[in-house]
Simulated scan of single mutants.
Amino acid sequence: MLTTEGQAGKVYELAGDSSYILTELAALISQKTGKPVVYQNLPEAEFEVVLISVGLPAGLAALLADSYVAAAKGALFDEGGVLGRLIGRGTTSVAESLG
């Protein structure tokens, strides 16, 4: 794709073919490991504090907390199927990725 003509200035969203929410991811991880994993939705400010408490720089923690909120509002959701078309097959689901 990068070496073909006419790509200058184009943006491709490389999302997978299927979406998931974090509670589903936690359940899948629990299922695969046999250990309880629980997703806990935190308010942005609280999440930022947690990130700082585990050693992230304040600026990065703020960026990640803001990104987390935007993602929760659907900012990363994409049904375009661009990645699957670019690689010539369907993408791997999160469940398949976890093995």
Rank of each mutant, 00 (worst) to 15 (best):
37 V>I: 13
22 L>C: 14
67 S>W: 04
74 G>Q: 10
8 A>P: 00
45 A>P: 06
71 A>I: 06
46 E>V: 15
83 L>C: 05
8 A>F: 14
69 V>K: 14
96 E>Y: 06
73 K>R: 11
71 A>E: 06
91 T>N: 02
94 V>A: 15
90 G>M: 09
86 L>N: 04
79 E>T: 08
24 E>A: 13
81 G>R: 13
21 I>K: 09
70 A>R: 03
88 G>D: 03
28 L>V: 09
45 A>S: 10
74 G>S: 05
66 D>H: 13
68 Y>I: 04
39 Y>D: 00
99 G>M: 09
19 S>E: 02
8 A>Q: 10
44 E>N: 12
54 V>P: 02
42 L>F: 13
54 V>W: 04
68 Y>T: 08
96 E>G: 04
51 L>K: 05
73 K>E: 03
3 T>W: 14
52 I>K: 11
29 I>M: 15
70 A>S: 01
13 E>A: 04
44 E>T: 12
84 G>T: 05
89 R>S: 07
95 A>I: 12
3 T>N: 14
78 D>E: 07
4 T>G: 15
60 L>A: 05
86 L>I: 11
33 T>P: 02
61 A>R: 05
13 E>I: 01
65 A>C: 07
3 T>E: 14
36 P>Q: 15
48 E>L: 11
29 I>F: 11
35 K>P: 03
22 L>Y: 13
30 S>N: 06
57 P>G: 10
60 L>G: 09
83 L>Y: 05
49 V>T: 09
95 A>V: 12
5 E>W: 15
94 V>S: 13
37 V>Q: 00
11 V>G: 08
24 E>M: 10
17 D>A: 13
96 E>A: 13
96 E>R: 11
25 L>G: 00
42 L>V: 03
61 A>D: 04
70 A>I: 02
91 T>M: 07
86 L>P: 12
51 L>M: 12
58 A>G: 03
26 A>T: 01
21 I>Q: 09
41 N>I: 02
64 L>A: 01
86 L>E: 10
51 L>Q: 09
28 L>S: 14
86 L>A: 03
59 G>I: 07
9 G>P: 14
63 L>G: 06
67 S>A: 01
78 D>C: 11
87 I>M: 06
48 E>P: 01
29 I>K: 11
92 T>H: 11
77 F>P: 00
30 S>R: 00
80 G>Q: 01
15 A>H: 05
95 A>H: 10
49 V>W: 04
64 L>C: 03
93 S>Y: 11
98 L>T: 03
79 E>H: 03
4 T>Q: 14
51 L>F: 08
56 L>T: 00
38 V>L: 13
8 A>K: 13
6 G>Q: 14
74 G>H: 05
91 T>Q: 07
13 E>D: 09
93 S>E: 10
10 K>M: 06
91 T>I: 08
79 E>W: 00
78 D>Q: 08
31 Q>T: 10
97 S>M: 05
4 T>P: 13
68 Y>E: 03
26 A>Q: 00
36 P>I: 01
1 M>P: 07
68 Y>C: 03
77 F>M: 10
75 A>G: 04
44 E>S: 15
68 Y>H: 03
35 K>Q: 15
76 L>A: 07
45 A>C: 02
92 T>L: 10
52 I>L: 04
48 E>S: 11
90 G>S: 14
17 D>G: 15
63 L>F: 08
84 G>A: 09
